[in-house]
Design a protein around this nucleic acid. Structure first.
Lengths: 213, 213, 213, 213
DNA sequence: CATGAATGAGGTTTCATTCAT
DNA sequence: TATGAATGAAACCTCATTCAT
């Protein structure tokens, strides 16, 4: 997707590095002030680029949204692969714990990305919206797989796999989205451990007796 | 807060009704297209008001955000009171179930409010941001109270009350925020029942054995 | 063509009058300073409209070119009809004389239109280019018809009708295009009479003997 | 005029050749797309020069217009001299025929010069405008001289020498300016022969009887 | 000498807001 | 009271020009 963005430069390395710079600063600023409250000028100031320079590496302000989206690859690099890599050697419980932790840590590492996608997605062009939701869906799908395996092995007992997977993913994302609240009460470590605990409680086989339903 | 918004009209009833109209239509439109992609003109068209007329009842486009926030009272009307009203007559479990259900239904009734607050809050003036978060915090506090009571009565066993309350609230809100995903998999009824089930599982006293944490 | 131009106004009469105003002033300015040396601001100043007001009646600066083209109808109104109306009552010679005169006078009345089309046509969108050339072609065709009739009646003797028609039309247009030169040497009256004389000389039946060819 | 254009180079030969290159390519491009739709970048691409290199040989984009004008010398090289050189040996008719032909051929050889001067002259600085019109005026003057001689010798009979000279020159220029029309109907050879014929008809001594004037 | 990355002035366009009717 | 025509501030974007390499 990034390939199609206009540039006046032919130095591929430079283009790449400038775009990374732009995406990083802009994601931060968009998450903080919103896409429409951030001018190209300001982004330029933040990156130490002139307004005109920016337009050597993008064609449109909207393209910055594309850049940010394409930086998601960095954020998720290895997440989906690693999660499943050791599937055989580890128990489902271990895998789940590992993935929940990893997921939360990644969210914490680039919180602006998550906030961005919750908040600014509407201003992005449709392909970007689709792409971002795709990531989300993939994450849910990963956890579905893990849960399914755990159920088959008898480690887990889950009524609705999709629902639990969704809760896990949303739970991780909240760390970025509801920062203002969560940071007041938890450290990252605490939050992660709570998420893990909660998750395991939701899936553990010897279910507590729920009196009504 | 709404009191301070400029109006050229002296007919209080008219002011009120016009503002309700504005808030309703605008909330919808902002949730759909975003604050900055919705022009005053369009809002006027949607409400059947001329652009000029709108400015008889507000001073600034931003004021519409204030109106929307103050309409939240309608959304939450009775929620906090009812939740606690029958505290004595009902068990904590019953109260919890009731409140989770009620919460989800309210989110479902005006999804644009929730989406609005997740997505457009950044464009609102600080007092409005604070006010909106206040609602959120109040909801969390309500569930904290319920959980605390349940713990004291021995019905529940919860490690971290705040965390669970937060999960409940976020879970409800997700119904509006992740519509695009959840509607594909669940009806409102299913979602609510899953939320309730999950919640109870998280708090039930005869806990499942979690191996690590 | 004008129909498709964006406007925010619904008052059709107003739209029309504003657009006429714009077209007139802009044609003048474009002919004088060129499309690209004339800012929308300046056009606004000239018409006594604010920059923003202009954009209530057009969507794009380019649209002004469309407006100008569509004002050509006014310039040519009646030209093609009248020319042929009295075809039966008048001799071909009389008709020719009349049309040449009329053509020159029209060019003189709105010289900026002709200069515009010689000079700025390249900046106009393709449909406008086509439309303008269409007018030119129609004018040539009119003279072709007159010449053909004269030839049949024996009044004229013309080798290449198209060529002569082209010369007549270009000759008239030059009055606007080469103003800077022609005005130094001729008045409009003189120019017209010279054009007529030249034309008749080119078509008269008792041809002079051209010694070589 | 060209002398005054800034250069950072001291190698006069290089400067000259670079400028010729620039003028040729740019004239073409300006005639095709217009001065303002042609970027310095594009001119550089066309000539195989870097954008920066161009600015070693000119000071301003406008200077390219100066270069183009000064390349007109090439176009007209010999035209004025040759025309009059054999004035004594040839009849006025022969001279006239020769010059009309030569004029048309030169227009055809570098049509972009003519189109350029009809269309982009307004974007050129005043001295250039004056210079270009000077060429035009010189051409008219040349034909005036020829016509005058022919009148004196009795070969021609012309009412208004200036007018006829103007018609000849414009007629030649039209071959470049109204290409889109003329090429559909004539080859260069046909056009030239028609121009010659027409010219001779306009000046021949045993005039046809024109009934009015 | 040649290059192209960087710059910012200046243009177009949008849209919240005012104000006369 | 209701309207929408008028406005201009402020945003995006282009591109001539400079300058370090």
């Amino acid at each position: 997707m990034e390939r199609r963005i206009r540039t006046y430069s032919t130095d591929e390395g430079l283009v790449k590095s400038r775009r990374v710079q732009l995406a990083l600063y802009a994601a931060e600023m968009f998450a903080d002030k919103g896409y429409h409250n951030t001018t190209v000028q300001e982004i330029g100031d933040a990156c130490g680029m002139g307004k005109g320079t920016i337009y050597h590496y993008i064609g449109t302000k909207e393209d910055i949204l594309r850049l940010i989206e394409s930086k998601a690859t960095v954020l998720w690099e290895g997440f989906f692969e690693e999660g499943l890599a050791n599937f055989d050697k580890m128990s489902a419980t271990e895998t789940l714990r590992h993935c929940v932790e990893d997921f939360c840590r990644r969210v914490d590492k680039y919180p602006s990305f998550t906030r961005f996608w919750y908040q600014e997605i509407r201003y992005a062009p449709p392909e970007v919206q689709r792409a971002i939701r795709e990531w989300d869906t993939r994450a849910v799908a990963l956890f579905e797989k893990i849960l399914a395996k755990g159920c088959m092995s008898g480690e887990f007992k889950v009524d609705d796999i999709t629902m639990v997977a969704h809760i896990i993913v949303s739970g991780g994302e909240m760390w970025a989205v509801k920062r203002w609240f969560l940071r007041k009460h938890f450290t990252l470590k605490e939050y992660i451990s709570a998420q893990v605990k909660m998750t395991l409680r939701l899936v553990c086989a010897n279910e507590c007796i729920v009196k009504a339903g």
